[in-house]
Simulated assay, not measured.
Amino acid sequence: MALLVAAGAAGGGYWLWQQDQRLQAQHSQYLVAGSVQADLQPMQERLSALSSELQQLTQRSSGPGEQALARLDKGIAELGERQSRVQQQLAKQQQADTDLQQNAQQLKQRFDELARAKRAAWAESEAGYLAFVAKNRIRFYGDVDSALAALKKADELLADLGGESIEARRGIARAVDSLLKVQSPDRARINRALHQIGERLPELPLAVGTGAEPVASAPASAAAAEGWQAQAGHAWEELKGSLSKLVVVARDLKVVPLVTPQERFFLHQNLTLELEAARLAALRGDQALYQKSLERAREWLGLYFDDQSAEVQDTIRELGELADEPVTVALPDIGPLLAPVERLGFRSAE
């Protein structure tokens, strides 16, 4: 029994010890849970406060942010619309610039066409005038060189006009060909030869005779009122009358020189006038006056100068050769050939 009581007491003690240990463990857990609960409560309260503040902050910030966002969206939309309008305006401006450039190009083309038309009209008018000048230079002056120069210029003006000027240029070419066939007299050589003869006149020896009487000259007022040809005629008549009394050509008589300077002066002056008349007639193409003036000069040289002198003989011979020179030629009538050119000029002037 004692053993049983001792065993029962030991078992009961062990059970009690286990219960005590369990109660201590539960008490420890309770204490820890109470401590955690005490620590968690402030945290829950802080979390609750933070959650409340966050909700309030969210509520306070959500209104202006959305409004600002709405305003921003609205501004972006307005900017988009403005950009769209600007792009449209830019597109319209670009189209206007394109239209303006096209109009400017069309105007330039039109201006160029008008300018070409004006230049063509001017060229046709100028060519017609040059053809008129060439025709009159041949008709009234016999000036082949000037006519050829005018026709060359007229052809240059018509060269750039195209097909409309073909007929006119053909007329110019025919007129030029006809003028190139003309054998023009060498008027420059004739003029130079007559000038040299006139310079030699004072050195030619005069014929000799007997006696000397002064030669009366025409009154100064009457001489001034007449032309040089009339004066030359009067001087020649006076000289012939004076020399008919003054000079007697006699080869078997003793040589007596002319001692009166007045007769020598009038003789040289009349010969000079005849040579000048021949030069003028050569320039004008007056063959009759040219030959008549040279024949009269030769006659005076033979009558009143020493025809035995080599200088006088050479001068008479040279005047005879010059008298045989043609100073005028039969010039072609280029008027009908240049009619297309003149018509072209008249059309442009209308």
Rank of each mutant, 00 (worst) to 15 (best):
A2F: 04
L3E: 13
L4W: 01
G11K: 00
G12E: 11
L16G: 15
W17L: 12
Q21C: 03
L23D: 10
Q24F: 04
Y30W: 07
Q37F: 05
Q37V: 10
L47V: 10
Q59S: 15
R60P: 01
S61N: 07
S61R: 08
S62R: 07
G65L: 12
D73Q: 14
G75T: 10
G75Y: 04
V86H: 08
K92R: 15
Q94V: 03
T98N: 10
Q101M: 10
Q109I: 03
Q109T: 09
F111H: 11
R116T: 13
R119A: 15
S125K: 06
E126W: 02
G128H: 06
V133W: 00
A134T: 01
N136E: 14
R137D: 13
I138N: 02
Y141N: 10
D143W: 00
S146M: 08
A149H: 02
A150V: 00
L157E: 09
D160G: 15
S165P: 01
I166N: 14
I166M: 09
A168Q: 08
A168P: 03
R170I: 08
A173V: 05
D177P: 01
D177V: 04
V182Y: 02
V182N: 02
S184P: 00
A193G: 03
G198P: 00
P205A: 14
A207E: 15
G211P: 00
A212N: 08
E237F: 02
S242R: 05
L243W: 02
V255Q: 14
V256F: 04
R264H: 11
N270W: 01
E274H: 11
E276C: 03
L280H: 10
L280R: 12
A281E: 02
A281P: 05
L283C: 03
S293A: 15
S293F: 03
L294H: 05
R296Y: 04
E299K: 05
Y304Q: 10
D307T: 12
A310T: 05
L319Y: 04
E321L: 09
P326V: 07
D333Q: 13
L338K: 06
A339V: 04
R343D: 13
L344G: 15
R347H: 06
E350D: 10
